[in-house]
Design a protein around this nucleic acid. Structure first.
Length: 433
RNA sequence: GUGCCUGUAGCUCAAUGGUUAGAGCGCCUGACUGUGGCUCAGGAGGCUGUGGGUUCGAAACCCAUCAGGCACCCCA
């Protein structure tokens, strides 16, 4: 007999979890569509070649295999590479700038942990073909709207720019090659502290003097305007870093004008982010309730999309990790938690009343009320118990007396109590309840 | 991928190497032939993750394997 087991790092989502997941998805796609983003879906499988050479060190995490024809294929690693492929492949049918969102599973062969799985769902939202700081700001605004709508009480989005991070490294006399180690070290600041970062930098061959400078830059905190001012002072000689600071300033202005609450974002020079394809803005939303890491992140990547198209196509975007959002919401006990999809449970008094009950169920459904019909006419007690255990809020009774009077009894299984309402008013009564 | 911890009923957990592996919750039946939750009485449910080994004897000790958790790594 086959193993009764799912694959390591891949999960089944039973109804209670699935209902929360669908709420998360509906909330996020709602925000996307209110911003005029268009949906896109691509296959889970891509040519391995399409994914290779874009992820830096972690290509070993890609699931690869051969199909029956010997083609080298791979499961997609994120939604970004397929986006780049689509933009190049359908260049004639897509008008830039293009706002699109995509929802679906991606696969990484990592060691699973809490909030991190080998199969995970992402909702990806990107603005393709614009380098305007307004595009960057809109993405961050959508992130803020989404997390707020989901009910996250206290999240903050940390903003930084890759060329500021690069400037930090350059200011310390390091070349691009050794910069990667510097990014990784400072990215861990919140986890291992200043001394931890210093140790790691020294181990990586950075001089004590440079390490001290990097640490000083990275620890600058305060209101965005002040942080930007302090950074431009320290990075004064670095053209690219100054341009980046100007860009970040424009993005932050945009956030203000879009009405993003100031307490929801801050400039954080220590934010680096691992993915190597980011070129401009980088950001991560964090909450104190999830010390394991970020809720979601993203940034600007002006070169990746162009790799397929053969010309630069500036793009900024973000990825919501549905699984991670779900895990955190589960832990914080936020979000709706319906026990089932049905609101009403229509009992069947007996064989004589079955037709009336089925007709009532049909009326309720036509009126937009999710309705469960009993499969058992063997006693009301049993049916009430069934309805209660399913978590349905209202049980409806249509016995001989009710039918004679043209009424339906609505029994409130949550609060207790019951009342008789005229048959014609049942949908309205449940609608307002 | 590396290191550490864990795996016993549907769930949460008990059980000095020694009878037939237990409890709470949940589940099923009944008390209750037009009314769930509360109460009471009864009942079902286990090759102790899997496969080897040590031992007179293993849920417990050893090895392997699978799965989960934590740290590293990285990230959604």
């Amino acid at each position: 007999m086959a193993k009764v087991q799912n694959i390591k790092g891949m999960r089944d989502h039973l109804p209670p979890a699935m209902m929360l997941r669908q709420h998360i998805v509906a909330t996020i796609t709602g925000v996307c569509e209110r911003h005029g983003f268009e949906p896109l879906q691509t296959p889970i499988i891509e040519y391995a070649e399409a994914l290779e050479g874009k992820l830096g060190d972690d290509e070993s995490l890609i699931y690869r295999f051969e199909d029956h024809g010997g083609r080298r294929l791979a499961l997609r690693y994120d939604q970004t590479v397929p986006l780049a492929r689509v933009v190049a492949q359908y260049a004639g049918q897509i008008t830039l700038p293009w706002r699109r969102y995509a929802l679906g599973p991606s696969y990484r062969g990592e060691r699973p942990a809490r909030g991190r799985y080998r199969e995970f769902y992402q909702a990806d939202a990107d603005i393709v073909g614009s380098s305007s700081p307004l595009a960057d700001a809109e993405i961050v605004a959508m992130l803020t709207e989404s997390l707020t709508a989901l009910g996250f009480p206290d999240f903050v989005t940390m903003l930084n720019h890759r060329q500021i991070v690069g400037g930090v490294a350059r200011a310390s006399g390091l070349d691009e090659a050794s910069a990667g180690g510097v990014y990784r070290a400072i990215d861990k600041f919140d986890k291992i502290g200043a001394d931890g970062v210093r140790d790691e930098l020294l181990r990586g061959g950075v001089s004590a003097e440079s390490a001290a400078q990097i640490l000083a830059l990275v620890q600058i905190e305060g209101p965005p305007a002040e942080v930007l001012a302090a950074l431009s002072e320290r990075l004064a000689g670095d053209e690219r870093a100054l341009a980046a600071l100007e860009n970040l300033r424009a993005i932050i202005d945009g956030l203000g004008q879009m009405g993003v609450p100031p307490e929801r974002y801050k400039v954080a020079p220590r934010l680096a982010r691992g993915l190597s394809y980011y070129t401009g803005l980088v950001f991560e939303a964090i909450t104190p309730h999830w010390p394991e890491g970020s809720l979601l992140g993203g940034g600007r990547y002006d070169e990746l999309v162009g790799q397929f198209a053969g010309r630069p196509i500036p793009t900024v975007g973000l990825a919501f990790g549905i699984d991670r959002l779900h895990d955190v919401m589960e832990e914080l006990k936020i979000g709706p938690r319906p026990a089932t999809t049905a609101v009403a449970y229509v009992t069947i008094f007996g064989p004589e009343q079955m037709a009336d009950s089925l007709a009532l169920a049909r009326e309720l459904r036509a009126g937009g009320v999710n309705t469960l019909i009993s499969l058992d006419s063997g006693g009301l007690g049993k049916q009430f118990k069934d309805a209660d255990r399913k978590g349905v809020s209202y049980a409806l009774v249509l016995g001989p007396d009710e039918i004679a009077r043209g009424e339906v009894v609505i029994k409130d299984l949550r609060g207790g109590g019951q009342r008789a309402v005229p048959r014609a008013e049942v949908v309205a009564a449940l609608g307002e309840a």
